[in-house]
């Protein structure tokens, strides 16, 4: 039991961070506006959670200009994807164990 608990990743404890990673697992690149729309959170909230994931090297940031306006998009790193997969596996195992 404790072995599995170890794989539960604290970084994904938060719903917004969990959401960001879920979206980035199945989409190559997603910009800020779309993330905000999908997750239904405020700018500040989203930005702070993105920062946290960025610090852990789970996501990468791309800054470009679209129609002369700055546009920021994000993608999950390989490291981040692996970490998230492990987290999902751990969640599944925990649920099956307790049944």
């Amino acid at each position: 039991m404790s072995g599995i608990i170890q794989h539960i990743n604290k970084a994904f404890d938060n719903r917004v961070r969990l959401g960001i990673m879920s979206v980035l697992m199945v989409n190559e690149k997603v910009d800020f506006k779309r993330l905000k729309q999908l997750l239904g959170v405020t700018d500040g909230n989203l930005a702070s959670h993105i920062k946290a994931l960025e610090k852990l090297n789970y996501i990468e940031v791309y800054k470009t200009f679209v129609d002369r306006k700055p546009n920021t998009s994000y993608s999950a790193t390989r490291f981040g994807k692996e970490a998230f997969k492990k987290h999902i596996d751990a969640l599944e195992k925990l649920i099956h164990q307790q049944k």
Binding site: F12, R15, L18, G19, S22, V23, M25, V26, N27, V30, R34, L38, L39, I88, L91, E92, L94, I95, Q98
Partner: peptide, 21 residues
């Protein structure tokens, strides 16, 4: 936190579907 884990998984699945389909 069995329920929380289950909810987390459901949330993951929902967001994966909604963002890509």
């Amino acid at each position: 936190d069995k329920n929380k884990y289950l909810e987390d998984l459901q949330e993951i699945k929902k967001l994966m579907n909604r963002s890509s389909k």
